[in-house]
């Protein structure tokens, strides 16, 4: 599973234009949801906030795997928007960038690394971080919210 963190809201709106941009929000319902940056709840949260701040949001979509082109095709997205905000890891962003070449696709998350999950304890643990995030190695977070946890609840033997 891939762990990505969403950038602060202020940085997202810096990339948007209130007058020109018609915005679509596309959210991944697998890894990003598990890590607290995607799924239905984050989509609703961001959509509501953007509308309240006067941005023109035209489309919203939740797709099981944004990184899978067959899944994207199955979703039959007919977007009125000219700007897409992607709530997924960088792989999901790459997939949408390729599939919507005429639209501005904004990456609003940053990849941290690959994680191991324990859905019974509702925890995920960073096992293979990207180089810029090596300090995250071994850190644990709450599933669905991405809230950092203190202490080690998953003991890994061979990292």
């Amino acid at each position: 599973m891939i762990f990505s963190k969403i950038v602060p809201y202020e940085e997202i709106i810096k990339k948007l234009d209130k007058k020109e941009d018609k915005i679509a929000i596309i959210s991944c319902n697998t890894c990003a949801r598990t890590c607290g940056n995607g799924g239905i709840s984050k989509l609703n949260e961001l959509g509501l906030r953007l509308i309240r701040d006067g941005y023109y949001v035209t489309d919203e979509a939740v797709i099981l795997y944004v990184c899978s082109e067959p899944m994207l095709r199955e979703a039959k997205l007919d977007l009125e928007a000219n700007t897409i905000i992607v709530l997924s890891c960088s792989a999901g962003w790459a997939s949408l960038t390729r599939n919507f070449p005429d639209k501005k696709v904004l990456q609003v998350t940053e990849d941290i690394g690959l994680v191991m999950t324990d859905t019974d304890k509702e925890i995920f643990k960073v096992i293979m971080p990207y180089k810029n995030h090596e300090s995250e190695m071994g850190k644990e977070y709450r599933i669905n919210t991405g809230e950092p946890l203190v202490g080690e609840k998953i003991k890994v033997r061979c990292v």
Binding site: K22, N29, I40, G47, L48, I51, R52, Y56, V57, T58, D59, E60, A61, V62, I63, L64, M71, E74, A75, K76, L77, E80
Partner: peptide, 17 residues
């Protein structure tokens, strides 16, 4: 089936927010 949502939400007047 996986839950996937795709919807148009344009045209919200301010008071419905």
């Amino acid at each position: 089936t996986p839950k996937s949502i795709s919807k148009k939400i344009s045209g919200y007047p301010f008071w419905t927010l």
